[in-house]
């Protein structure tokens, strides 16, 4: 019989964990059809772990859903399916069928169109199809400026839009979960976590994450100063372009053509954390999609991007 978990009870991480568990239980108790959005990355891994803890010894009463753009790293898909089997949590996978029909891809249509159709639109379609009234996501307030202002229980109208000027006041841990038919709430249990907290928690709790987060020799090409991994044969190479093996890792995971790798020697989790402590580049820089104006994330979010 363990007296406590591996975390010291008074620690900052324990407080964050407790808060997240409280939030997940509120969702299970207050919504009819909640779902947890699972994107296979490190934040999703932490969410899945917390989901299991929150409802132990019961199986989590909330299914997980992955919006698959069909351009994810192959390892992500294998990892996803294995974790679903191991945890026994119900997994829903959704892909925008029209997008597939039209052959939408990041190369011919560009990052913005691809993300909009295969991610933003797909997510809305999935939420409508399954009539989910609450969707748990892994966004954190330290990621980006407009997220720093978002509530933990973030209201969405029937068109999935976020109105930053009309956010509900959110006092104490008394979350207002009342909505009308068709409306929904996005819930962010990791709001108060920083990227470093996520990694330390993964380490402390022994949580599985895809090995893409660790440095390894991988075939990459350089595009506009960003290192892109050639994950399958669909990656078009210009004449004379030859993928090079470089020791790289990823700080975030998404569609492989849109996810920049960083050169790194950190091939173990502690080394990754150590690199983080001395790092001077924030995590979103690896996402090709947010590069332009810093207000872009807010725009995407208003339109329903997670």
């Amino acid at each position: 019989m363990a007296e406590t978990g591996s975390l010291a009870r008074s620690s900052h991480l324990k407080r964050l964990e407790t808060e997240a568990i409280h939030i997940m239980r509120e969702v299970a108790a207050q919504f009819a059809d909640p779902v947890m959005l699972y994107s296979v990355g490190k934040d999703s891994s932490v969410l899945l772990h917390l989901l299991q803890k929150a409802f132990y010894p019961a199986r989590p009463p909330i299914p997980i859903m992955h919006v698959d753009t069909k351009w994810k790293f192959q390892e992500m898909i294998r990892f996803r399916d294995r974790r679903a089997r191991e945890t026994g949590v119900k997994l829903i996978v959704y892909t925008n069928p029209e997008g597939v029909q039209q052959g939408i891809n990041p190369f011919t249509h560009g990052a913005t169109v691809h993300t909009d159709i295969m991610k933003t639109q797909a997510l809305k379609q999935a939420l409508d199809k399954y009539r989910f009234d609450a969707a748990i996501g892994g966004a954190r307030r330290d990621e980006e400026k407009s997220r720093a202002k978002e509530r933990i229980f973030s209201f969405r109208n029937a068109k999935h839009r976020w109105d930053p000027k009309k956010q509900r006041p959110e006092l104490w841990d008394l979350y207002n979960t009342r909505i009308h038919k068709g409306e929904s709430v996005r819930v962010f249990p990791l709001s108060n976590w920083t990227e470093l907290d996520i990694w330390l928690y993964i380490y402390r709790e022994n949580i599985q994450v895809p090995s893409l987060y660790l440095a390894a020799e991988r075939p990459v090409v350089e595009r506009d100063g960003t290192l892109i991994m050639v994950d399958d044969e669909r990656m078009p190479l210009s004449a004379g372009e030859v993928p090079q093996m470089r020791k790289v890792r990823f700080r975030t995971l998404g569609c492989y053509p849109l996810t920049g790798a960083i050169e790194s020697e950190a091939d173990t989790l502690p080394k990754v954390i150590q690199e983080m402590l001395v790092t001077h580049t924030s995590e979103r820089q690896g996402r090709v999609i947010d590069h332009d104006e810093s207000a872009s994330m807010e725009k995407k979010k208003q339109e329903g991007y997670f």
Partner: peptide
């Protein structure tokens, strides 16, 4: 393809020691 799990990292390399120390302080 291997998956990363903290368990697997039995080698108490330098980074691990440094992280343990950091974690202790952080906690």
């Amino acid at each position: 393809m291997s998956y990363l799990q903290a368990d697997d990292m039995t080698q108490m390399d330098q980074a691990t020691t440094a992280i343990e120390a950091y974690l202790q302080q952080h906690e």
